[in-house]
Nucleic acid binder design. Structure first.
Length: 338
DNA sequence: TGCTAACCTGA
DNA sequence: CAGGTTAGC
């Protein structure tokens, strides 16, 4: 079973900022009260509900949860966590708003925009893609306006994608939720908030059998072995993060369980390396169907992707990926247009 | 820059 | 069968 966060009770009501509001005597002492900050507007990004969902829950990250809200004009709230941060996001009349446990406000106010990639000139990045000469790419860009590449912590991203082999997003989310719940530190703000993911040092101390108990299957062996390596090489991930794309990828590929696809995902979503072009089955399918690259092998597709889409190929990849998942479920002999 | 099966588990 | 990697032809 996966734990039930975020706590529904904690979401209700208005801004619980009244610090002088004494805790009621009939409230259970087992649920330590914490205060959410006021909702704050986020500038620099105005995604639709669909694009917000695709960004948070489209396979880049595995620790965001959507909750339906019935009692107001807001239809849903996303709760996510990374590093020591917990944040909620909502769309209020096209305005993206966020809040965090009040005690974390200052840190999250800095960390959230970076996590969402809002410190980058997204328009310029998209404009650098060859959409003028590529009608399918142009169609993908229009279909998901403002879709972002997240900038997640490298170590957590690595863990998530070590879980990802032949698994769907829901299952990966379940694995990392179990890892966090059973082996990660509780949030200092409240027991009802999601735990952190275990650090690689913590993971190294977990017997493989206990990892398997988190539904990891054969992936437990890879995570266990990678954890042994990382625990005995302090600073290895931090150094990897500083390297240029090719060198960083070569290093990641030495970890057990990390192949081409996982390495590129980790670098794209966990290190801001927009040159990384992960080739999974969706991208294989996309380039085969939309670019007539029938029969090309993953390595060839990757080479084509980097050459055709350029230094920000990873951004293009995310649009193609999202489009294929949403619209490409069944083959369509579409735009053979050149 | 070959190719294929085995690897765990459950939506 | 699933958003892959690895061992072993």
């Amino acid at each position: 079973m996966v734990g039930c966060w975020p706590p529904i009770k904690a979401i209700s009501g208005k801004n619980p900022r009244a610090l002088n509001c004494a805790q009621r005597a009939d409230e259970p002492p087992v649920s330590p009260q914490f205060l959410w900050s006021d909702w704050q507007g986020l500038t620099g990004w105005q995604p639709s509900a669909d694009v917000l969902a695709e960004t948070l829950d489209g396979g880049q990250a595995f620790r965001w949860r959507r909750e339906a809200v019935t009692s107001s004009q807001i239809s849903e709230i996303w709760t996510g966590t990374w590093s020591g941060q917990v944040a909620q996001l909502r769309l209020n009349h096209h305005q993206l708003e966020w809040r965090t446990p009040a005690a974390h406000y200052a840190a999250t106010a800095v960390a959230l925009p970076r996590y969402l990639g809002l410190d980058l000139d997204h328009h310029a990045l998209v404009d650098s893609l060859p959409w003028r000469s590529d009608p399918h790419l142009a169609r993908c860009l229009v279909a998901f306006p403002g879709l972002r590449i997240l900038r997640q912590p490298l170590g957590e991203t690595l863990l998530g994608f070590l879980c990802s082999a032949t698994k769907q997003i829901v299952q990966i989310k379940q694995m990392v939720a179990l890892l966090a719940e059973r082996h990660g530190a509780a949030s200092p703000a409240a027991t009802t908030l999601p735990h952190r993911l275990p650090t690689w040092t913590e993971l190294a101390a977990i017997p493989e059998i206990d990892l398997r108990a988190c539904l990891l299957g054969f992936r437990a062996k890879y995570i266990h072995a990678s954890a042994q390596y990382l625990a005995s090489h302090p600073g290895w991930l931090e150094e990897t993060e500083q390297l240029p794309y090719a060198a960083a990828k070569a290093r990641l590929l030495t970890l057990p369980g990390v192949g081409e696809k996982v390495a590129d995902c980790v670098l794209l979503f966990g290190a801001g390396q927009l040159a990384a072009f992960p080739v999974d089955t969706w991208i294989l399918q996309s380039l085969e169907r939309r670019y007539q690259l029938t029969g090309w092998k993953p390595a060839q597709i990757a080479q084509f992707g980097r050459a055709h889409f350029g230094p920000n190929a990873g951004l293009a990849q995310q649009y193609l990926f999202s489009w294929e998942r949403k619209f490409g479920r069944h083959p369509s002999p579409d735009t053979a247009a050149k």
